[in-house]
């Protein structure tokens, strides 16, 4: 790393890689990124322009609406507060569902994977439950929890739970025996092993689980709203579609994609955290 100056490498380790500075122009440094981003922008503009032109000229506007109408609808909703009310409800459902499912999944993953026999007994049942499409649970959840926010939160949590649980359990079961033995040799008990080896070693698995689960929290919440609700973005889509208000449907989809993009940003941040250290073998 910084062996260049100041730090003297210990005897026998001088043969590390040598690093030198390479001067680069702005274009060499950012050229590819700049090209990619400008092409992306061009693509979006082109698609929107084509859409605007095609609407009502070649295709019935009832089916595809048009960008200017969608922007207008968004502005209208933003003005009268509809947009904020429904988005806030959906965001809350996503966040609560995610937190609940992730906490339960991580905890269950740690505990069950540490109890080898219990894990073997439960494994097929967990896999069976995991394989059920969570949409199929929606009617049952309505009966149990009504059509309020609880039902959506729990539907999102159910999806998140399994993803986090399975990844955590895999992480715990993959812990290097050598590291566990090392702590035992230091005089550590089971608690030390769990806290100083199992938890940090399985963090990669946990974070992977959290990462994959984030978009599923969104899916769970919106599906819950689509099935039965009187608030939230899913409700907004249903409501607009029922009135043949295509612009309204598209406007809601735009909001949903913005929320999804924000969530993906969070995923990106988690990714960076995961890659801070890597196992020695890599």
């Amino acid at each position: 790393m910084n062996t260049a100056e100041g730090v003297v490498a210990p005897a026998g380790t001088e043969s590390g890689p040598v690093r030198v500075a390479v001067p680069r122009t702005w274009w060499q440094r950012h050229g590819t990124t700049a090209t990619v981003w400008s092409l992306r922008l061009t693509l979006v503009v082109a698609v929107l322009a084509l859409w605007e032109v095609a609407a009502d000229r070649w295709v019935d506007i009832t089916f595809i609406s048009k960008p200017s109408d969608i922007v207008e609808r968004l502005a209208e909703w933003a003005g009268d507060g509809t947009l904020w009310l429904h988005s806030w409800i959906t965001v809350q459902e996503i966040v609560y569902g995610f937190l609940l499912g992730a906490a339960a999944g991580a905890l269950a993953g740690f505990v069950l994977a540490s109890l080898s026999l219990v894990y073997r007994v439960l494994d097929p049942f967990v896999m069976a439950l995991y394989s059920i499409p969570k949409v199929a649970l929606a009617p049952l959840f309505i009966v149990w929890f009504g059509i309020g926010m609880h039902m959506k939160v729990l539907l999102a949590a159910a999806t998140v739970f399994f993803l986090v649980f399975l990844n955590t359990a895999a992480g715990v079961r993959d812990v290097d025996r050598g590291l566990v033995d090392a702590v035992r040799l230091m005089g550590g008990n089971r608690w030390h092993v769990a806290r100083k080896v199992v938890v940090p070693a399985s963090m990669t698995g946990v974070l992977t689980g959290l990462k994959v689960a984030i978009p599923y929290a969104l899916i769970g919440a919106v599906i819950g709203e689509l099935v039965a609700s009187n608030r939230g973005l899913g409700y907004l889509i249903n409501d607009a579609a029922a009135q043949f208000d295509t612009a309204g449907v598209f406007a809601t989809l735009v909001v949903l994609s913005i929320i999804a993009a924000a969530l993906n940003l969070v995923v990106g941040l988690i990714d960076k955290r995961v890659n801070r250290w890597k196992p020695i073998d890599d």
Partner: peptide
Amino acid sequence: GPDTEIGYLTQSDTLMPW
């Protein structure tokens, strides 16, 4: 069982990577 009086340097590295 393992005893802290006995140190064991294994063949492979078991440093905690984190």
